[in-house]
Nucleic acid binder design. Structure first.
Lengths: 149, 149
DNA sequence: TTACGAGTTCAAGTAACTTGAGGTTCAAGA
DNA sequence: TCTTGAACCTCAAGTTACTTGAACTCGTAA
């Protein structure tokens, strides 16, 4: 039997089999050939395509963005510059998220540190930090509440 | 009429009204009093509680984690140290995500730079980067594919 | 031949809300 | 007092990107 079974494709691309069927359903992957017993058989090209898709997903591109990228690769009339621009837009998004996450890291680290320094380990209702989290107007300039919300 | 209407609570806590109803439905917020026309009326305590919830969510805690935190605040028999530990666990998660995102940023930036330097802007099917993304075994040590997957 | 793992389909579940439909209530202006 | 329109109500379905479950068939090794 030539070609890969779904489990083999899954292994090669580190994807779950149901995810592969899902990609087929939403049209990200073409419907593959079936062997006599109705089982899917994939070719080398499917491995490449799915690898591409998974890698893009790992890069944080949304399914719709990946779809655009896949179509772009397929369509000889469209330029590589489009892919570059899509990636560039995505880069801006990632950088914004990175900034947020850094602020968040700082805040939570501050939370833990303050808790270590100021709380006696008593009931949660007396915890200075939990109390602060519930405060409507963030008092002063505590790093803890700066980036929240 | 004493108390806040849902729209007022929403404004004070920068939350959508449907989200407030949703939180009530899943038991994160207690069922509020209703006035004669069946409209919800909230007290100051609800503002505090929802502020707490929203802030925790902004900190990236999951609904389940927030639920644990809320219960912790309410239960006088449980210690503040539990909150600290929960936050600490969360901090580790955030740091892991931060590392991933940094690698991702580097990779996409590399993608864009390589595209600027090497692609002639021709058809996507000839783009060196798109081509690389579809390559099964990442060739060499290009930063582009290192962190993906 | 008989297990049993791997495959099949279809439906429903997941998180954390958002959106829509269709109907009431409230508050302010004429 | 009436009327209008914003804000409220409930219930259901949509969103994203899959995952999980049920109930069944197929392929292959002992």
């Amino acid at each position: 039997m030539p070609g890969y079974k779904i489990g083999e494709l899954a292994e090669r691309t580190r994807t779950n089999a149901p995810t592969i069927r899902y990609y087929e359903e939403i049209g990200l992957l073409p419907r593959p050939e079936r062997q006599e017993g109705n089982q899917r058989r994939y070719a080398e090209d499917d491995v490449r395509r799915l690898t591409f898709i998974r890698r893009c997903r790992a890069f944080g591109f949304s399914i719709d963005q990946v779809r655009a990228l896949v179509e772009l690769v397929q369509d000889r009339t469209r330029s590589c510059a489009e892919a570059r621009d899509l990636a560039h837009t995505h880069l801006m998004d990632v950088r914004a998220k990175l900034r947020e996450l850094k602020a968040l890291e700082k805040s939570i680290a501050g939370f833990v540190a303050t808790c270590d320094a100021q709380c006696a380990g008593g009931p949660g209702s007396e915890c200075v930090i939990l109390d602060e989290l519930a405060t409507i107007e963030p008092a002063g300039n505590r790093a803890c509440c700066e980036s929240a919300v």
